[in-house]
């Protein structure tokens, strides 16, 4: 995950020239590394967890084995899948909304000076700001239902998606733009054939950051305001001191988000990066 895709300012360029590239590299290390190393890495993590649980570091720190067993039990009795379904619905709605709106606004800000002047500062502020503070406010207006959760997701996901779209378009390779102009591309052709394809890696990086922020938002909303889904599982098992179940819920949502992001990247490469296939 790159730094610069997340940064609102000029320093983005200092990191790797083009935003998104560091992200692609990081993911490459994640996916492309030798299988053996990854297995060793996972094994080491589980072993450390197990040992820490055996010591134990805290009465509230279950071993890896106990957590895995709790996970299996929760999958078997259906409580975990049900909680996932409840959590994922607002996440999917919120991220979809944010993606459509965010990419639209972001690209518009990148293309139009007027839109940039009006909207970019707002998104720069929102992206750097702790938007989580506004989640209690959302509950006022929309209660503790689905709408609140969707809004919580949008609050966290929209700014980063919009800002990435904006930066992606503003950082399009000027040489390609000159090329399109010299070969008589119309403004529309320039947008569709040059700007959007060249900006798409950073736009997709923004979408992944948005998904990641959306996960944070939906969990936060469930912990803070609406006791449902994974958040409820965490709170409930904590309240009755079922620590293995609590850890299993947390670990499962973290692993799930990591897998989701990896899948999104694979899909992106498969659908939109013909030049990267098989390399």
């Amino acid at each position: 995950m790159s730094s610069n895709v997340h940064s609102p300012g000029a320093a983005a360029a200092a990191v790797s020239g083009r935003p998104g590239r560091a992200l692609a590299r990081a993911a490459g290390a994640l996916v492309g590394g030798p299988m053996l190393w990854r297995l060793a890495s996972v094994a080491l993590f589980c072993l450390t967890w197990e040992v820490a649980g055996r010591i134990p570091v805290s009465y509230a720190f279950p071993t890896f084995g106990a957590t895995a067993a709790a996970f299996a039990a929760m999958v078997a009795d259906g409580s975990l899948p049900a909680a996932f379904a409840v959590t994922l619905l607002p996440l999917v709605i919120g991220v979809t909304l944010s993606a459509v709106l965010g990419v639209g606004i972001g690209v518009l800000m990148g293309l139009r000076r007027g839109a940039e002047w009006i909207a970019a500062p707002v998104f720069i502020v929102l992206q750097a700001a702790p938007m989580a503070a506004l989640i209690p406010l959302v509950t006022f207006v929309y209660g503790i239902g689905l709408t609140s959760k969707v809004l919580a997701v949008c609050l966290l996901a929209l700014p980063v998606i919009a800002l990435n779209g904006y930066k992606a378009v503003r950082n399009v390779n000027p040489s390609l733009l000159a090329m399109a102009r010299s070969f008589l591309a119309s403004p529309w052709q320039r947008v569709v054939r040059i700007i959007l394809p060249d900006a798409s890696p950073v736009i997709f990086a923004g979408l992944r950051l948005g998904v990641s922020a959306g996960f944070i938002g939906v969990i936060l909303a469930e912990l803070l305001i609406t006791p449902t889904g994974i958040g409820d599982l965490i709170t409930y098992h904590r309240s009755i001191a079922n620590y293995a179940e609590m850890y299993a819920s947390i670990a499962s949502i973290i692993v799930f988000s990591a897998v989701t992001l990896a899948v999104l990247q694979t899909v992106e490469v498969a659908l939109f990066r013909p030049e990267k296939k098989g390399t």
Binding site: A178, L184, I194, P274
Partner: peptide
Amino acid sequence: SGPGPERAFVFQDFALMPWAT
């Protein structure tokens, strides 16, 4: 008054679209 069909440009940095064959 701008680029025209009677002129074609070859760029120093090639300016090829990396996503296209």
